[in-house]
Design a protein around this nucleic acid. Structure first.
Length: 659
DNA sequence: ATCTGTAGCGCC
DNA sequence: AAAGGGCGCTACAGAT
């Protein structure tokens, strides 16, 4: 039965009207309740709640929020004996926070789907999809646009009620599936963390618009100058195909004589080829990628200009004046959106499709010019807390390699010097402290190699990064595994396990998993390739150069090895990245609970999360205490996931956002 | 005019 | 046989 909760003299012909007290009485002894809100928009600071709904499968209550504002249900929403089932709780929580309500326990049916099908981009997770999947019902999505107070008609009320009616049944189905896949701890963390991440969004971060504008003006000026320098280079060197010889009628000057769009990689590649610059990578692909061409910058005088141009072009396009559009007119702060569950469990930031332009706060250039424009409010300071070498420590714990363990246990100093000393025999007798100064090039090679390896790279990757021959790259690769045999063992183990299971187990604590997309396709290919006689057929057809070989066998084998390689690299890296991500989530959760328990909500703000970094904005007088507390919680969270080598956290109190 | 895919590059 | 993990945004290029 559907009830409308509204003033007693409001008549809804199709539904009984009841008071809020009657509804609260109804839910007194219910422990799992569906909850949803309908609002005028996405911004809690400027939009408002029109209706909110509470319901279970048998009865749903649609509350007119204009008559009964949501504060009427604060007490029940905060009741710790109840669990609130919401689909995408991040949205509803944002409006609840604005009404000073922090819901008790949440089951987020959206996040449950994300945990269940992590790694599979083909699974749709909208409420209508989930309701259809588990309850075989089709929800009336079109009615959403019709919701207005004056239009609380039959269809709208039915729609609003439908949004909560199926939530308990969805939860039961999801629980069963999650339990069978060993994912209950994973969803438990995500259901708690959604409150934290919503808090980050609600708090926002302040950007000094004048400071940012100045930065943009400087960049724009520099970009223009660099374009001019590139044009001049073409003219000075008389590269004829790129110079427009026709006289321009545009005597006032904007006309360019040089015929190339510097922002077009394709055009630049063509030019570079003509100039004799090697644009080919180790894989024989053509690229104008700065990371590739920078190795030739001493030989071609155009390259240093182009490299700087690309740098500044990025600053002007991605980190330009558009960023200011994110500033909220009410709070004067940036409230960007976050997504909670990426493939490894990391969070992401930014949302192009958002109604309000919404920037990525996790990839702002890590320098004073950009991050220095972010400021605390008057009387506040930032607490910047980050884990030191978070992934490296997780890596040592996961691999249990004896040499990596020794490095951390003995506190041997610079990681890359240590790895260099293990890879290069000529460094074996050199004191570690001297390597950085005396053998910087070997240290750099070791650094680059160990990064590449942690991401599943190999000798070729190393060769390409360091501009070495394939053989030299491969030698470093082999030397690394010789020096760190535990890493090889670990890699072999996780790859084998992932091929068996069809998923990558990310951490041993929450047991979160990333399912391998198209795993059945991989197994099908594997079976075919392993069929008796397959390779004889393959080689025979290859010799013939037959149509079967070109159109069927060759693409199939390519696909098989490509997928195999991808799965291996996932298996190597996801547990490292994902365990680190889970650790940071737990740390932020501890901190959030501390904030709530100590009545510091919206006084101690969590303003950004960047993977291994937590940034708080706090009243100056609380800064030192909160900094200590943050360090404590981050390390507590670290201990949950790392039982051999502990991970350390370093908080810094500052007027600036700095790393 | 609008959509989609890709190259390139910012962060961890 | 291919060849570095995770993300999001911008410009270009080619398509409709």
């Amino acid at each position: 039965m559907i009830y409308v909760v509204d003033r007693s003299d409001t008549i809804y012909p199709d539904f009984p009207t009841i008071s809020i007290e009657t509804m609260l009485d109804y839910f007194k002894d219910k422990s799992e309740i569906g909850f949803d809100t309908e609002t005028t928009g996405f911004d809690p600071y400027t939009d408002k709640i029109l209706t909110y709904q509470l319901g279970i499968s048998t009865d749903q209550f649609v509350v007119n929020a204009e008559y009964y504002p949501v504060r009427n249900v604060k007490e029940i929403l905060e009741d710790r004996s109840k669990t609130w089932i919401m689909h995408n709780a991040a949205f509803d929580c944002l409006f609840l926070y604005h009404n000073n309500i922090i819901p008790s326990n949440i089951w987020d049916s959206f996040l449950a789907e994300a945990v269940l099908y992590k790694g599979d981009p083909s699974v749709r997770k909208a409420l209508s999809d989930v309701a259809y999947r588990y309850c075989n019902v089709t929800l009336d999505k079109a009615a959403r646009g019709l919701i207005y107070r004056d239009n609380l008609n039959k269809r709208v009320i039915n729609y609003a009620a439908g949004d909560v009616k199926f939530l308990p049944a969805i939860k039961r189905n999801q629980e069963q599936l999650l339990d069978s896949k060993g994912l209950m701890k994973s969803i438990s963390l995500e259901n708690k963390f959604v409150k934290v991440l919503t808090y980050v969004k609600y708090c926002g971060i302040k950007l000094n618009a004048d400071c940012w504008t100045n930065k943009c003006n400087e960049d724009a000026k520099l970009l223009k100058s660099l374009e001019q320098q590139l044009d001049t280079w073409i003219e000075d060197n008389n590269i004829k195909e790129y110079i427009d010889t026709q006289l321009s009628l545009d005597i006032f000057g904007e006309h360019r004589k040089v015929k190339i769009q510097w922002s077009s990689p394709k055009q630049v590649v063509a030019l570079f080829k003509k100039l004799g610059i090697p644009v080919w990578t180790a894989e024989d692909k053509e690229t104008a990628d700065v990371r590739h061409i920078q190795r030739y910058q001493d030989d071609f005088s155009i390259l240093p200009i182009y490299i700087e141009y690309k740098k500044v072009e990025k600053l002007v396009s991605t980190y330009g004046m558009e960023v200011l559009k994110n500033i909220n007119s009410i709070t004067n702060r940036i409230h960007t959106s976050f997504k909670q569950i990426m493939k490894t469990g990391r969070i992401s930031s930014g949302d192009k499709s958002s109604a309000k332009y919404s920037i990525n706060l996790q990839n702002l250039p890590a320098d004073e010019r950009h991050r220095g424009c972010f400021i605390p409010e008057e009387g506040n300071v930032f607490v910047n807390a980050d884990y030191s070498q978070q992934e490296a420590v997780v890596f040592a714990n996961k691999t249990q390699d004896k040499n990596l363990i020794e490095f951390f246990e003995k506190g041997l100093g610079d990681m890359h010097s240590y790895i260099a000393s293990k890879i290069y025999p000529e460094l074996a007798e050199v004191p570690l402290a001297e390597i950085k100064k005396k053998y910087p090039e070997l240290r750099d090679k070791a650094k680059s190699a160990s990064f590449a390896l942690q991401y599943g790279g190999n000798g070729n990757t190393i060769a390409d990064n360091l501009n070495l021959t394939k053989e030299e790259g491969n030698n470093i690769y082999l030397a690394y595994f010789e020096a760190f045999p535990g890493v090889r063992q670990y890699f072999d183990y996780v790859a084998r396990k992932s091929f068996e299971d069809g998923y990558v187990l990310i951490d041993e604590v929450t047991k979160s998993k990333c399912f391998i997309f198209q795993f059945s396709e991989y197994k099908r290919l594997k079976t075919r390739v392993n069929n008796p006689g397959f390779w004889q057929d393959y080689n025979r057809e290859k010799q013939k150069g037959s149509v079967t070989f070109e159109n069927i066998l060759k693409p199939m084998v390519t696909k098989y090895f490509t997928m195999k390689g991808q799965i291996e690299r996932m298996a190597y890296n996801y547990p490292i990245q994902g365990t680190a991500a889970a650790m940071t989530k737990v740390a932020a959760l501890y901190l959030f609970n501390y904030i709530v328990e100590h009545k510091l909500f919206h006084r101690v703000k969590i303003v950004n999360l960047i993977h291994d970094e937590i940034i708080l904005e706090v009243p100056e007088e609380l800064a030192e205490a909160i900094a200590e507390q943050t360090k404590y919680y981050m390390e507590q969270a670290g201990d949950i996931f790392c039982n051999i080598i502990p991970v350390k956290a370093v908080p810094v109190v500052s007027k600036k956002w700095e790393h």
